[in-house]
């Protein structure tokens, strides 16, 4: 009898534990949708890519369920098709290099145009800033392809820019701008510029201008003020903007294809080739993962740099 009552009337400690358990359960249940989305939408597809990259290509696309490391080897090394010697897969490496260098150029150009733009907006009277920020976001309203084709209209042989230059007598015959690396860099800079402007704007907005005044009072030159006071303070915004521009540029597909004319592959197009006409899905999967690794390296670099900043403060 005594035992039964002990069970039916739990002690305060047990009650607390139960409440905690309930609390835990509710917490798990509430986070379940988010976790399902993460597993289904992020981890799942990634896992498929990893598995596919270790399989054998099917004869006409898809994969055969036979283990193979061939795809990974082939991202770096390939046998020459004519004399069978093993050598660097220089096609893949040079395409990767092209993507990397164009992404860097895009980032630098976006910074060169983005910093003055952000500065201009942040130094407007508060009431007017919203209007300028609104203008920066306007391009996002239309589809990427539409914006890219609009640029094509600007730079084609009989396009707006050429006609204007001809009219002003600066050039005698149309410049070949379409289907060049210039066109790709120009297009990507335009497309990703807002991603640079917004974080830098946020950083400049928070900038304490009394520090700038102090620098001026202490006879720092304008350049020195910019270099030693302003730049270090807005650096997190610049790094965030650069990462936001660099990462999508590295995998860009539509803009290089439309403006570059498809003659020189970018890394994104090389991956597409493997899933399409090349019919080598494992190689495509391995190349995609390689691209992800490159992105990861730049993100880790970002985290390192910013955390060092914080510990310095």
């Amino acid at each position: 009898m005594a035992e039964v009552s002990a069970m039916s009337e739990p002690t305060a400690g047990a009650l607390e534990r139960e409440a905690e358990r309930d609390d835990n359960r509710t917490r798990w249940l509430l986070s379940l949708p988010a976790m399902i989305i993460i597993v289904l939408a992020a981890a799942g597809p990634l896992l498929v890519m990893v598995v596919y990259s270790f399989l054998t290509p099917g004869d006409y696309g898809n994969v055969k369920w036979e283990f193979s490391t061939q795809a990974w080897v082939n991202t770096i090394l390939q046998r020459d098709i004519f004399d069978d010697t093993l050598m660097w897969a220089d096609a893949h490496l040079s395409i990767f290099w092209r993507s990397l260098s164009l992404s860097l150029i895009t980032t630098v150009m976006a910074f060169a145009f983005g910093l003055p733009t952000a500065w201009f907006i942040a130094t407007q009277p508060p009431g007017k800033r919203e209007f300028w920020l609104f203008l920066v976001t306007v391009p996002f309203w239309s589809n990427l392809l539409v914006r890219t084709i609009a640029i094509q209209e600007l730079i084609r042989a009989e396009g707006v820019i050429n006609n204007l230059l001809l009219l002003l007598g600066i050039i005698d015959e149309p410049l070949q701008m379409m289907f060049t690396n210039f066109a790709i860099a120009f297009g990507m800079t335009y497309v990703y510029l807002p991603l640079m402007v917004l974080p830098i704007y946020a950083a400049v907005d928070k900038l304490d201008f009394r520090l700038v005044e102090a620098a001026n009072d202490l006879y720092a030159s304008r350049w020195r003020t910019f270099w030693r006071v302003i730049l270090p303070l807005i650096k997190p915004g610049i790094i965030a903007g650069s990462i936001l521009v660099f990462i999508p540029s590295l995998g860009a597909y539509v803009t290089p294809r439309v403006l570059g004319g498809g003659k020189n592959l970018m890394f994104g197009n090389l991956i597409e080739l493997q899933f399409g006409q090349g019919r080598n899905w494992p190689l495509g999967a391995a190349l995609s993962l390689m691209l992800m690794a490159a992105v990861m390296v730049s993100l880790i670099w970002y985290v390192r740099v910013t955390s060092r900043e914080r510990s310095n403060v």
């Binding site: 098709i81 096609a91 006409q277």
Partner: peptide, 12 residues
């Protein structure tokens, strides 16, 4: 496969 290799070489 040979053709894909040639094709990639062409567009590298």
């Amino acid at each position: 496969k040979l053709y894909t290799r040639i094709w990639t070489d062409l567009q590298k």
